[in-house]
Design a protein around this nucleic acid. Sequence first.
DNA 1: GGCGCTATCGCATAAAGATGTTAGGCTTAT
DNA 2: ATAAGCCTAACATCTTTATGCGATAGCGCC
Lengths: 221, 221
Amino acid sequence: MVVGPTFARVIILGIIEDQAAIRDALCAYLDAQPDFSCVLCAGSHEEFMAGLAALEVPPTLVLSDIGLPGRSGIEGLALLRQALPAAEVLMLSVYTDAERVFEALRQGAIGYLEKTTPLPLLKEHLLQVAAGGSPMSPSVARHVTRYFAPRPANPLASLTPREHDIVRGIEDGLSYKLIADRLGLSLDTVRSHIRQVYRKLQVNSKAEIMAKARPRPLLPW
Amino acid sequence: MVVGPTFARVIILGIIEDQAAIRDALCAYLDAQPDFSCVLCAGSHEEFMAGLAALEVPPTLVLSDIGLPGRSGIEGLALLRQALPAAEVLMLSVYTDAERVFEALRQGAIGYLEKTTPLPLLKEHLLQVAAGGSPMSPSVARHVTRYFAPRPANPLASLTPREHDIVRGIEDGLSYKLIADRLGLSLDTVRSHIRQVYRKLQVNSKAEIMAKARPRPLLPW
DNA sequence: GGCGCTATCGCATAAAGATGTTAGGCTTAT
DNA sequence: ATAAGCCTAACATCTTTATGCGATAGCGCC
């Protein structure tokens, strides 16, 4: 018995793409592959959603453009994932700006590829999704690395280890008392450190620390 | 005159990899490419740092393993980026766990590839770095998509619009007074809403709200 | 119309947090 | 060895939060 990445069942594909030429090319190419079966190709999100009802087997992987007429690929993503909770959605777009990339990821896209991706490579990417991966064009991934990369001059760098402990406690939502307990300090010592932290970071409340620590993430709340 | 992605100068490479066989293979293969010049191949981070001084041209791109003897690739990343601010560092690892991936990205890695990446593909990835991309193996990128994907059932869903306004204010690090000003409410009204929010979310402090709203990101601050 | 829910506001009190000042012991660098 | 920085701690004071108990008013709903 051979152990390895195998795809017992074909991947049921759905495609949303407004440009007929591209849509047809995608459909034709992928459907011709032994690993894929394209069951629904639509020119708009609305059309795709409408077409879902008639299917006996729902797609397990949807390839969606972003720049669509009517409801955009991103706007429709939430609805799509609601209608097909088990399916993964891979975005395919000419746009690779940070705004759209993050919005798509927030809405649960499993990956984000440039539209210029050659068909054979796209096929590989789709297989990788099935294998538990998240394909992402390098230019798209760059936004991600920037997001995580340390701010050039981060003010927290000047904090001592102990001060970091205190900040960590604050970020965990603990009271001074609990921080003191956790670190085995007196309440006044915690106060003392916190004062120092406030001076260094130019703030004057726990809430500001937390807000400053992570400058308003792009998350939907 | 042709417009297109051209690489006028070769990419100056540095490599840190403890397994001699792999290190030599990388070095040999890449150095043989017209686009690359490998100027420093080291078996440990310490060795690499020491070797930097003797170079007349510093690397512009460093390929670093993570599982190194002595200082790990991640521990050394900060030092490396300090010593070579202009260089990009691409991590190459057998480990693709979320912990290490995020830590590497936080420390400023420009990309993260699996060690199993075939050499020709690796070469492509390196070129993509030079072209402004961030190569990332699909299995690595999966962690990223998970990070951004919406929490399945978020308790904040039950909050009324007004209550959301209040929570937003809290997350911005504002005091009750400032929230009241921002929303044009009285201080007592803000208190009132906050009480309601606390009941719904089962917390009893601003700090807990903030800690709960974003369940401790993996960021170091 | 009455019921539930939201949004608004007030008062009061106790707990938690913010801020100033001071200070001893310890390590590290000059 | 002198200075600098860190960790610890105490006391005092004032501000902000947390929480209980009301109250009025609008809105949709059956």
